[in-house]
Structures are given as structure tokens and as C-alpha cells.
């Protein structure tokens, strides 16, 4: 359960205050499939970063699973992020020197999970995302679609409740984008919360709940 109330975020750009978010109220129930659309600069990425605890709001409160996370320390935030949230980025953000397997393993390594447990989880993830024959390859030996599948597997490795995807298909051709989207939607079908930020109406339209943002405010919230 995600509950934002009165969330505001202001950036200083060249000495001028830019209101990326102005008093956003938003509730997302577990298992929801939500898309956030809007022109660039409308604050959709900032909203996603705040939901993902990468950024802190200047005002307002954020409750994640009945817990106020606005007041947590950096280390506590890192722990919550590690356990509850999975990120998928437009540019994949795989570590180039590590193999696909090692990239998927990274969150579990950071969490200090037992190697035997990691191994069994990795085998399951590789099978689930069709990466078994790509496990030993480095990112530069993988196609864009494969990279994003690795990134999704990595995001899922800690069993998060919320998956946040920022333009996940923005760097892929149409066909591969559709494939990756289908993989992401499986997360939702399995009961996870999925939030996708996009400026592509075709992709955003597939979500059950569609948010439209403009100038740091939610201007439309459609369901069904």
C-alpha cells in the first residue's frame, strides 16, 4: 500500500526554484497496474523516484505499507528500498564488467543473502526470464531486449512488492518493447504492484489505472 499526501519537491535550477511536484496526493493499492504519463518536465520521474525512495520530498508524508518512510534515515531507506522496491530503467543500468548472472545477483549480494539461497533463486529467475543460455554473457554481448530482461530479473531478485519502471521500453524497438512490457506485466499478473512511467500513450494505455501529469500536478486519474 502506497499513500502519498501533499508531496512537494522543488529543485533549484540556476538559482530559480522549479516546482517538480506540487502537493501530490496519491494512493496505490497492492497489485495495481498504474501508468504515469505526461510531457517531459511534468514531474513524472520525480514522482517515481520519490515512490522508490531514491529522492526525498520537501513537504508531505509518504506511507509505505502503513509505515511513514519520510522520516527514515538514509540507511533505513536503503534497507526498505532493497526489500520492497524493484527498479527498471530506460538505459538498463547493468554493470558492464559483470555477467548477466552477476548483475541479477547484485541486490542479493548487497543484502548479504546466503550463497546457496542465491544460487537457487538465480536458477529460478534465469528460467523465468528465459536467460539460461545468456547467464555468462556480459551486457555488451546481449541485445537490448535481453539487457532489459536481465534488469527486470535483477529488480525481482529480492521479491519486491512494488516494481517501478521508468520508460522501460524507451530504448528498445517497438517489437522488443512489446515483449519487455509483456514480461513486466507478468509481475502484475502475479500480484505485484507495477508502476510504469512513459510518454507513449499506447504503452500507458495498457494499464488499468492511468495517471496524467502536468507541471508537477496530477491532472487526470482514469481507471478501467
Amino acid at each position: 500500500m502506497i499513500r502519498l499526501s501533499g508531496i512537494a519537491r522543488t529543485f533549484l535550477v540556476g538559482g530559480e526554484a522549479v516546482h517538480a511536484l506540487r502537493a501530490v496526493d496519491l494512493s496505490i493499492t497492492p497489485g495495481e497496474y498504474l501508468s504515469i504519463m505526461g510531457p517531459s518536465g511534468s514531474g513524472k520521474s520525480t514522482l517515481l523516484n520519490i515512490i522508490g525512495l531514491l529522492d526525498r520530498p520537501d513537504a508531505g508524508t509518504y506511507e509505505l505499507d502503513e509505515r511513514n518512510v519520510t522520516a527514515l534515515s538514509d540507511n533505513e531507506l536503503a534497507r526498505v528500498r532493497r526489500e520492497k522496491i524493484g527498479f527498471v530503467f530506460q538505459f538498463f543500468h547493468l554493470v558492464p564488467r559483470l555477467t548477466a548472472l552477476q548483475n541479477i545477483e547484485l541486490p542479493m549480494v548487497l543484502a548479504g543473502i546466503d550463497p546457496a539461497e542465491r544460487k537457487s533463486r538465480l536458477a529460478r529467475l534465469l528460467a523465468e526470464y528465459g536467460l539460461e543460455d545468456r547467464a555468462g554473457h556480459r551486457p555488451d554481448q546481449l541485445s537490448g531486449g535481453q539487457c532489459q530482461r536481465v534488469a527486470i530479473a535483477r529488480a525481482m531478485s529480492m521479491g519486491p512488492t512494488v516494481i517501478l519502471a521508468d520508460e522501460p521500453t524507451g530504448n528498445l524497438d517497438r517489437h522488443t518493447g512489446q515483449e519487455v512490457l509483456a514480461v513486466l506485466e507478468r509481475v502484475h499478473e502475479n500480484g505485484g504492484t507495477l508502476v510504469i512511467v512513459t510518454h507513449d500513450p499506447e504503452i500507458g494505455g495498457r494499464a488499468q489505472r492511468r495517471l496524467r501529469m502536468l507541471d508537477g500536478a496530477v491532472v487526470a486519474d482514469e481507471k478501467g
Partner: peptide, 16 residues
């Protein structure tokens, strides 16, 4: 920079 940012997004603390 990106790698460090990524590690943080994946739940690494400043100490790590």
C-alpha cells in the same frame, strides 16, 4: 557515477 547510483537504487547503503 551510474554504477554507484545503481548500487544505491538496488539498496546499497552509503557505508556499503
Amino acid at each position: 557515477r551510474r554504477e554507484i547510483g545503481l548500487l544505491k537504487a538496488l539498496g546499497a547503503t552509503g557505508g556499503q
